[in-house]
Design a protein around this nucleic acid. Structure first.
Lengths: 153, 153
DNA sequence: ATAGAACCTCAACTATAGTTGAGGTCAAGG
DNA sequence: CCTTGACCTCAACTATAGTTGAGGTTCTAT
């Protein structure tokens, strides 16, 4: 049972410590590692040992998830961080700026959807041929053709 | 191969027809039925036959999904429709009004998140103890205690 | 009557994001 | 030294929202 000894600030972290400090379950940390989002060294006895940087990385993962970015994309974004040196504040800033754009797009999409829904509440539609809610093309540009409600009820 | 015969407007629909008219795959229609979102009668030979109302129901399901409502909730909402009579425009209006509130909440949550992210981009945080992105409590009221980043890096 | 499209069921598989449990090992306080 | 909590791997399971395929049946146009 490891106690936090004052002055021991540079020791590597065990998986349990990272879990406690980040609020992420041990199983999730294993999972992130399997998916290539975080890395660990191993002790003599094959136990994970994390550099302190991992805490920020996990924090970034959590933040991105809250923004709605899937893990695969987070992995890619983290992979774009400079290898070799510890990422700087500026590196993290660039990451969040990218996600900010994503977030904007999602907000805009939902807002358009809300406006469409408002129109539908007003007009009592959802049954009418060109209800915006039923013809997503009007709400967002969908990629590919994709069948859509072209016929009336 | 059924052709649409003019004047045959009250015939029940086959699953293929519903699929073609709604843009939803046959497999998905089976799936919705299994989950209790739609219903069908059966022909002599055990094939699905749908009342025309199912088209509107499927349209509502699609609209709700676009708004981000999970199928289980859509099922519940549809279950609240008056049984016996065919739902009126007013019934559908009530449904969409409920989802509108949901949508509003989601937009507000994302907007708060965006503001937090803006702050983080500005201050170069994500590492600082009380970064709003790392302390979701500040962004949205979470239900339950739940571990959170209480310790600094 | 019959070909073939459309339909049926049921099980298995996809993807995402993990959690849970079995069976076994490691490490540190007493 | 030895117990006990923390750790290890790997497989299986959860939930959501379906899709795919096998094997067999029905419908309908010709």
């Amino acid at each position: 049972m490891r106690k936090t000894v004052p002055g021991e600030r540079h020791r590597q972290l065990t998986v349990g410590e990272v879990s406690a400090r980040s609020g992420v379950a041990v199983s999730a940390l294993h999972f992130y590692e399997a998916k290539g989002l975080i890395e660990s060294l191993r002790s003599e006895g094959n136990q994970r040992r994390y550099a302190r940087e991992v805490l920020r990385r996990v924090a970034v993962i959590k933040a991105a998830q809250r923004v709605g970015i899937p893990l695969a994309e987070i992995r890619t974004a983290l992979g774009a961080l400079p290898s070799g040196r510890t990422p700087t504040t500026e590196d993290w800033r660039a990451l969040s700026a990218g996600w900010r754009a994503d977030l904007d797009a999602r907000i805009e999409r939902l807002t358009r959807l809300r406006d469409a829904l408002d129109g539908c509440i007003g007009c009592g539609c959802l049954s009418i041929r060109d209800c915006p809610l039923r013809n997503p093309r009007d709400i967002m540009a969908e990629r590919g053709p994709g069948a859509s409600t072209l016929e009336p009820d």
